[in-house]
């Protein structure tokens, strides 16, 4: 069992390299344009896999606060101390009416008596970076497919070597 856990400690990183090399090989060596674009997408997802693997924490949950945590803060203003029954995280903080405010009287911190454990949630920064990368990736895939169709309209084929031959022979 320990042997498997030792493997799984780095297994994600090995697989990301393997998948990335599969995609890179397809981008270089395949003749078909659609195959090249599938290889490009596989390359992209391998990099996203790498980033997401970095952000994983053992024993951490998804980066969204629990319902109890969110609503403990809201109820506190209305009902006082009886809002604490659902949550266990924030008994250590002082829960009085001493919320900090800025010079205009607005609170500077929302629900200051909610305590959030920094190691209890997965790293949200890598998720944000990769979320936009996926959607931009599908747009670039669309541009690549449009160029493929344009090549098919010009040359009647989407094989790279046949297009090379057609260009060399002056069409």
């Amino acid at each position: 069992m320990e042997f498997f856990e030792a493997i799984s400690a780095k297994f994600n990183y090995w697989i990301y390299v393997i998948i990335m090399m599969i995609g890179l090989y397809a981008m270089i060596a395949k003749n078909n344009m659609v195959k090249k674009l599938i290889g490009m997408s596989i390359f992209q997802t391998a990099i996203i896999l790498f980033y997401v693997s970095i952000g994983v924490k053992d024993g951490a949950t998804i980066p969204i606060l629990y319902h109890d945590q969110v609503h403990a803060g809201h109820h506190h203003d209305d009902h006082g101390d009886d809002a604490h029954h659902g949550s266990t995280d924030h008994h250590d903080t002082s829960h009085g009416g001493d919320h900090e405010t800025d010079e205009f009287g607005y609170p500077t911190r929302h629900a200051p008596d909610v305590h959030i454990d920094g190691d209890g949630f997965a790293n949200p920064l890598v998720h944000v970076l990769m979320l936009t990368a996926i959607v931009v990736g599908v747009s670039t895939l669309g541009v690549g497919l449009a160029i493929t169709q344009k090549l098919h309209r010009e040359f009647g084929t989407i094989e790279e070597n046949e297009i090379h031959d057609l260009i060399k022979s002056g069409k």
């Binding site: 024993g59 606060l65 945590q69 911190r109 929302h110 454990d117 190691d119 949200p124 998720h127």
Partner: peptide
């Protein structure tokens, strides 16, 4: 949890302070 990417203070700030600063439970 102590790897450089996870213990960097920007990531820690996003986890612990986002709800207090924006009132949004979904940090992403």
């Amino acid at each position: 949890p102590n790897s450089p990417a996870n213990s960097y203070r920007l990531s820690q700030h996003f986890v612990t302070e986002t709800f207090h600063e924006t009132a949004v439970p979904n940090m992403v």
